[in-house]
């Protein structure tokens, strides 16, 4: 494991912890899209099915359990915790995320490395993760109110994706035969979505500064 991968995983974990902290302590999920959170829960549930079939390391198994547990907890809080649910922007969070699920499933059935149950679901999870942030970005554009914690959550997620790309570049040059087109292309698409968002976030922040 290289430093980029470790830093990426830690950034990813912090992003989820920031979100859980916000929801658990402030009892508010204002500005958070439950659709994006449901997509992440599906991503982890389908990608980590191999938790039962292949063991990599205690670190990997532990992190998989962290991501599964945290994503399902966040969905549970937003859907079923009364105080938290009251703060949910239901009218604004209208992205049809099941359309994304269906499209990614079809794509995984068409484009994969091996046509096996676990492999197709693993590929599906990569496609879905690439676009899972879309409902969250749409919600932010609609409400136009981004609090510090939600901003930090998205910023940390973007950082995690950027670090994973550095990790792949590092592995490509240090490990023979490390070539993973599907992982790389979906990872790149996902990172570009964040970069696009940050670009416009930065522009509006700069304009606000000017107004002041």
């Amino acid at each position: 494991m290289n430093i980029f991968r470790l830093a990426g995983d830690m950034t990813h974990m912090f992003s989820v912890l920031v979100l859980l902290l916000k929801i658990h302590t402030i009892k508010s999920c204002a500005g958070v899209s439950v659709k994006t959170q449901e997509l992440y829960a599906i991503v982890f549930a389908t990608r980590y099915l191999d938790i039962f079939t292949s063991f990599v390391s205690i670190y990997n198994t532990f992190m998989k359990l962290v991501f599964l547990g945290s994503s399902f907890s966040i969905v549970w809080y937003m859907r079923y915790h009364k105080a938290v649910h009251r703060t949910y922007d239901r009218e604004q969070d209208t992205f049809r995320h099941w359309f994304l699920v269906l499209s990614c499933l079809l794509l995984a059935l068409l484009i994969h490395e091996k046509f096996t149950f676990l492999e197709v679901l693993w590929t599906f999870s990569l496609y879905l993760e690439a676009v899972a942030i879309l409902p969250q970005l749409v919600l932010l554009q609609r409400t136009r109110n981004i609090d510090n914690l939600t901003g930090q959550y998205i910023f940390l997620l973007g950082g995690y994706r950027g670090l994973y790309i550095l990790n792949w570049i590092y592995r490509y040059f240090t490990e023979p035969h490390f070539v993973h087109w599907i992982t790389w292309i979906t990872g790149l698409v996902q990172t570009l979505l964040y970069a696009d968002f940050f670009y416009y976030y930065f522009l509006s922040w700069k304009n606000n500064k000017k107004l002041n």
């Binding site: 191999d50 292949s54 390391s57 990997n60 992190m63 991501f67 693993w122 994973y164 035969h177 992982t183």
Partner: peptide, 10 residues
């Protein structure tokens, strides 16, 4: 071997 070693990532 190509896909298996990317599965050591999260």
């Amino acid at each position: 071997s190509s896909q298996s070693d990317s599965k050591d990532e999260l």
